[in-house]
């Protein structure tokens, strides 16, 4: 055990000296700041209707024609302009008087034909996006109105739930923060550590310094353990830092202890996998390439089923589950143990 400690200390020291860990933390800070700076951008990518929640000025919308839809649109968060025909509206559009044109259809909600609404928006222009989002609400109301009128003809009874009062605020970013951001922050150090163990091992092979180390009283197995322990223990430490930052930003993170334990277990799996690849192939070029491939696969698989580490991190941090998920932790720990036996066998063969 003492020998392993020596290796751990040596590796940690070199991480500090080369400032690699510092760089790693800057990388993660960069990712984190990106995510929070661009939370609007990303979240709107995740849920486009989120853009609507910002206090945007009313868009100037040109309305062509008359009909029942007109009343719905006038109630929306827009500023209406009226035109007699499409071509005068288009002129207004190109003179920047209006940012959207909507043509009121002739068909009635009570009629039987499809109601076709024609809309013109500026291409590749944020104004068009805002106008569209502001038009969406009244159009939806109109659709619900028409749908109600017509679907009753079919005898369709929609599922309807009632509520005394709808919540005042909305929670646009809840699912984004817990579903994407927190798992990303908890597991990014894992991916980095997996790459790091490969660098630690292949460098010894390629510089031929491993032979020197083996002349000392250290065994290969101890060196391997020491390096792997280093790569694994820095993961929960970094995870803690991120969760602390997120908490300081006002996001409530539940079950921090369990989250860090989970990150440690997953780190063990990924680091041992990295070690297996490095011990087996010995060259950095090949090992890193194969590791990246394996990582992509694990990443995809991680999103494929409930109770995957990603999903567990989401539910733990959101407080949907608690200690009952330790069962799954046990399963993942068993996987790590199996891999550990594997890496030792390969290591013995050399």
């Amino acid at each position: 055990m003492a020998n392993r400690k020596i290796i751990v200390k040596k590796e940690l020291k070199s991480l500090m000296f080369e400032k690699t860990l510092v760089l790693a933390i800057i990388v993660q800070l960069f990712i984190a700041s990106f995510s929070s700076l661009l939370v609007i951008g990303l979240a709107s990518f995740f849920d486009p209707s989120a853009l609507d929640r910002y206090n945007t000025p009313r868009s100037n919308v040109g309305i062509v024609g008359t009909g029942e839809l007109k009343q719905f649109i006038e109630k929306g968060h827009i500023r209406p302009f009226y035109y007699d025909n499409l071509s005068s509206a288009v002129t207004g559009f190109y003179n920047n008087e209006i940012d959207a044109i909507i043509v009121i259809p002739k068909e009635d909600a009570n009629g039987s034909g499809i109601i076709q609404i024609m809309t013109y928006l500026p291409k590749s222009d944020i104004k068009g996006t805002f106008a569209m989002l502001q038009l969406k609400k009244p159009l939806e109301n109109y659709e619900a109105y028409a749908q109600d009128l017509r679907s009753s003809r079919l005898g369709f009874e929609p599922v309807r739930l009632i509520v005394d009062r709808s919540p005042k605020k909305t929670s646009t970013y809840f699912e984004f923060i817990y579903g994407i951001l927190i798992p990303l922050l908890v597991f990014t150090p894992v991916f980095i550590s997996g790459g790091m163990i490969i660098d630690m091992l292949t460098e010894e092979y390629e510089r031929k310094t491993l032979d020197l180390l083996l002349v000392s009283p250290l065994s290969f197995s101890e060196i391997l353990d020491g390096k792997m322990i280093t790569a694994i223990i820095i993961v929960p430490a970094q995870g803690f830092l991120w969760l602390l930052l997120v908490t300081l930003n006002g996001v409530i993170v539940n079950n921090i202890g369990l989250l860090l334990l989970l990150s440690g277990i997953v780190a063990a799996i990924v680091v041992i996998l990295g070690a297996i690849i490095a011990v087996r192939f010995k060259k950095r070029m090949v090992s890193q390439y194969l590791y990246s491939l394996v990582l992509i696969m694990l990443f995809l698989v991680g999103y494929l089923f409930a109770n995957s580490p990603f999903n567990l991190a989401t539910r733990l941090s959101a407080g949907s589950v608690g200690a009952e998920v330790l069962v799954y932790f046990g399963v993942y720990a068993a996987v790590a143990l199996g891999l550990y036996v594997g890496v030792k066998r390969i290591g013995m063969r050399g």
Partner: peptide, 22 residues
């Protein structure tokens, strides 16, 4: 609603958007 196979009575409102370069 989709299962009714009757577009006119189930999804009566359609919107077409044309993006104009400006």
């Amino acid at each position: 609603l989709m299962t009714y196979n009757d577009l006119n009575n189930t999804f009566p409102v359609w919107i077409t958007i044309d993006n104009l370069a400006r």
